[in-house]
Design a protein around this nucleic acid. Sequence first.
DNA 1: ACTTAATTGTGTAAGTAATACACAGAACTA
DNA 2: TAGTTCTGTGTATTACTTACACAATTAAGT
Lengths: 267, 267
Amino acid sequence: MTSEQPDPAATTDEIRLLWSGHEPGPARRGPRPKLTRSEVVAAAVRLADAEGIEAVSMQRVAAALGYTTMSLYRYVDSKDDLLLLMSDAAMDTTPPGPREDGDWRAGLEEWCMGGVALYRAHPWMVRLSVTGPPSGPNGIRWMEAGLREICAPGLRPSEAVQMLLILTTVLRETLRMESDMQQAAHRHGQQISDNESDWVQGLLGVLDPGAFPTVTRVLGQLGTDEDEFGGLDLDSERVSGPAEGLGFGIDRILDGIEAYVGRRAAD
Amino acid sequence: MTSEQPDPAATTDEIRLLWSGHEPGPARRGPRPKLTRSEVVAAAVRLADAEGIEAVSMQRVAAALGYTTMSLYRYVDSKDDLLLLMSDAAMDTTPPGPREDGDWRAGLEEWCMGGVALYRAHPWMVRLSVTGPPSGPNGIRWMEAGLREICAPGLRPSEAVQMLLILTTVLRETLRMESDMQQAAHRHGQQISDNESDWVQGLLGVLDPGAFPTVTRVLGQLGTDEDEFGGLDLDSERVSGPAEGLGFGIDRILDGIEAYVGRRAAD
DNA sequence: ACTTAATTGTGTAAGTAATACACAGAACTA
DNA sequence: TAGTTCTGTGTATTACTTACACAATTAAGT
């Protein structure tokens, strides 16, 4: 566990940064830059994909490009800016949809699966602290796709934004736990599947059933016959771990939206 | 935005750490320790409460206690361990409940409000990366209280754990965004309420309505007559910002649980 | 009482990382 | 050609965590 000290640029600055062109202007005075901001960001993304976000230091990124550390600061104001640009750059894929048949629920499920794929492709993304809703071009593209589906059943604007934010949050955080556990397991040479039950077994060995009756009962029943997940299988690869239940959770959130719009339509 | 490199102890070690007594054993050989682990953790928590998590360095904590930096390592193996202990220590309050009337939904709402209060009291908590489900004594106490309510409608164990995790995740992340925005606003001397609309206004100024029709429409309608939040008002202080919609989101998740158990009961 | 062993708080220093600053050279402008 | 501006580099500063050795301190063993 490590802390972070987010120094979030004001939203306005953030937007300016993310939407400013990455390519060099036409003809400026000094020596022409040998790199572009996009190249720097791309190198950082490659590094993060390959070795994880903790490998992304200004030194490493510069070395990967064959330049000195300080040269990067000609393209990026700070490391925080670089990370911000990275997280938008990594979303440079086409989100699912649009769904033609108007089945908003299926559309949102597809959108979520797309998100899972995205986070699996760039596991480091879930480790960056998000300052707020998406602000970059690619993030907005994903938001557009998601909003298109979630607005279909007739949510009000604030409601749609809020629920979409919740969906991405749940996705993100669930996958972050999965990735944390994988890292921990890897570091200790264990299997991943062992790790979740490690938590359960470790707790059961420590907890006093008298003091925590519900927790001990519930943990004790996990994975027994009393227990079986219903719901959508978002995690097609069937990796065990927290993401196992992600589909169920998403399903319940969609249930909630459905119930709400149904109730409202009844009035 | 800043990265973090979580070095999560294996779950087992984490549990051992969190459940190991904080007080000194009876009589050991050398000079008797002048501090206790609890005191160190408490000092760190006080510091984080007062100045934010970024103020918590081994130096600062030691100075607050009147000792040298290195002395802390007699009580704590690493800073990561300290942060882990802090996050459990901060949950040292009694969670709401138990609800006697069996109204699980009201019970969960209360539980969530308790969580909001907790995170508001220790805003730095939302900035620590959580490696997984709660593992410490206090975290488990909160989990016990939450599970008690969420199991009432008859969810299966995995389902209950998953949904409770989702509730806390949504709580946490929503409040983290709120806190990020407050920090950003504070740093720039703006009002908080300006800040969310900063995001909206900033985006609207940049987005091409042709390319992002849904986003521009939805953002444009935010806060107009078309738009009005229904649902639970979790945020009694009515601070504007992301937490404004938190109650609505929680409500929908509870709707989802209700719909699910209702459907299952029908079989 | 006296030796031995363990343990505390401290000082020093190593290692990593972000980034401020100045400078030499490059390339455009006038 | 002179002047100006921008690039990449080298150096240095700052802030951190934490390894390690040491002297002082206390209990255990005799």
